[in-house]
Amino acid sequence: MSEPDSGPDQAEGAQQGPERASSRGIVLAVVALAWAAAMLWSARATITGRTDAEMEVTSTAYAMPGAVSAALVAGAAAALAVVTLLPRAGRTARFLAAIGTGLAVGLLGGLTIITINSEGWVYAVVGGTIAAAATIGGAPAGFGHPRVTAAVCWGAIAVFLLGVVLSFLQHDLLPVFGAGDTSSSRADAASYFGFAQGALGGLAAGLVTYRLLRRARHRTGADVRWPLYALAGAGPGLLLVVGELLTRTAGARVLELAGKISELELTVQQMLSGSRLNNGLIVLFVGAFTAMVAVGRTLGSPAPAPDTAPAVAAQPADLSRAGD
């Protein structure tokens, strides 16, 4: 490690020492890994529960996006927990540790899908996509600003949980958005529901990340610059967008195979892909805007200018005394 690299790293470690020494990173890693494990278990159970080969392929295509997004967050949280245990390491060492941790998480997650059928290329593609997602997710933990990375992970978990709750309530909420007896009204209601879900997810992401960054400031006495609040608020949406891009690129062969089963399945895959991307973008922009508004409300107003009226009033008295 070179001296120019070690100086800023040691200063940063000294500034964030109380934060690095806490157990909050371990708690975040446990929660994120548990969420990823639940998503992977659900995906495996859904895939293996199909006896028909075509249904098995479509189930794999449906389960892949959620598993990829969960792997992104799990890789980031696990890498952050490992990096916090290396307060004296240099920037390069922390980055390598973060990448290695994300890769390890990704390989473990990918094996849960690959072992469904080690000879099927479909499961190898899904497993490789999950491994790539966790590795990419671990990279930000090595760039510094651990409190921002932690806030993004917690915000993403909040968005995931909100999505689960809304999915259970979707049937009851669709009539509120105009769902009726016709297929067109139900399609329009589903579209409006998707926009509302994205907006609520962005609101949750912005508020959760803002509160966590504020709590970190009160705990350590140091704050991050306001653009990092916006970045943290946008982080959960950015993870959703990156997850969708990975699904469309690394997992493209699985989606293409599912689309070849029937014209209806192709249309469904295209609609779901567009809906996921739109949802991620909405969460991104609404989350960033919410965090910026929240931090903007706490900025202090400039101090009022001093009142010069007494000095002006005293001037004639001074002149009169001078004349005497």
Results as ranks from 00 to 15, higher is better:
Arg186Leu: 04
Tyr192Cys: 03
Asp181Pro: 00
Leu166Pro: 01
Ser184His: 07
Ala158Ile: 02
Gly180Ala: 08
Leu166Val: 00
Leu169Pro: 02
Phe160Ser: 11
Asp181Val: 00
Asp181Gly: 09
Pro175Cys: 06
Phe177Gly: 02
Thr149Cys: 11
Gly180Leu: 13
Phe160Thr: 12
Ala151Tyr: 08
Pro175Leu: 09
Phe195Leu: 14
Ala179Cys: 10
Val148Cys: 12
His171Ser: 13
Gln170Met: 14
Val148Gln: 11
His171Pro: 03
Ala187Leu: 14
Ala150Pro: 00
Val165Met: 13
Val176Tyr: 15
Ser185Val: 00
Thr182Gln: 12
Val159Trp: 10
Trp154Phe: 12
Ser191Pro: 00
Gly180His: 13
Ser185Ile: 01
Ala156Asp: 05
Gly180Ile: 02
Gly180Asp: 10
Ser167Tyr: 11
Ala189Asp: 05
Trp154Leu: 09
Ala187Thr: 02
Val164Pro: 02
Leu166Met: 15
His171Thr: 04
Ser191Lys: 13
Gly163Trp: 06
Cys153Glu: 03
Leu173Cys: 05
Ser184Gln: 07
Ala156Ser: 11
Val165Leu: 14
Leu173Ala: 09
Gln170Ala: 13
Phe195Ala: 09
Val152Glu: 06
Leu162Glu: 09
Gly194His: 10
Phe195Ile: 08
Arg186Gln: 07
Val164Phe: 12
Ser183Cys: 00
Ala150Cys: 02
Leu169Met: 14
Leu173Gly: 04
Asp172His: 15
Leu174Thr: 00
Asp188Asn: 11
Val152Met: 12
Ala156Gly: 03
Val176Trp: 12
Phe168Gln: 13
Gln170Asp: 04
Phe168Met: 13
Ala189Val: 01
Arg186His: 03
Phe193Asn: 03
Leu174Lys: 14
Ala187Ile: 02
Arg186Ile: 00
Val176Ile: 09
Ser185Phe: 07
Phe193Arg: 08
Ala156Tyr: 09
Gly180Pro: 07
Ser167Asp: 14
Leu173Arg: 06
Phe168Gly: 04
Phe168Arg: 15
His171Lys: 15
Gly178Cys: 04
Gly180Thr: 01
Leu173Glu: 03
Val148Leu: 15
Arg147Gly: 08
Ala150Phe: 08
Asp181His: 11
Ala189Cys: 07
Phe160Trp: 11
Arg186Asn: 02
Ala156Phe: 13
Leu166Trp: 07
Gln170His: 10
Phe168His: 14
Asp181Gln: 13
Ile157Met: 10
Phe168Ile: 03
Trp154Tyr: 13
Tyr192Ser: 06
Gly178Tyr: 07
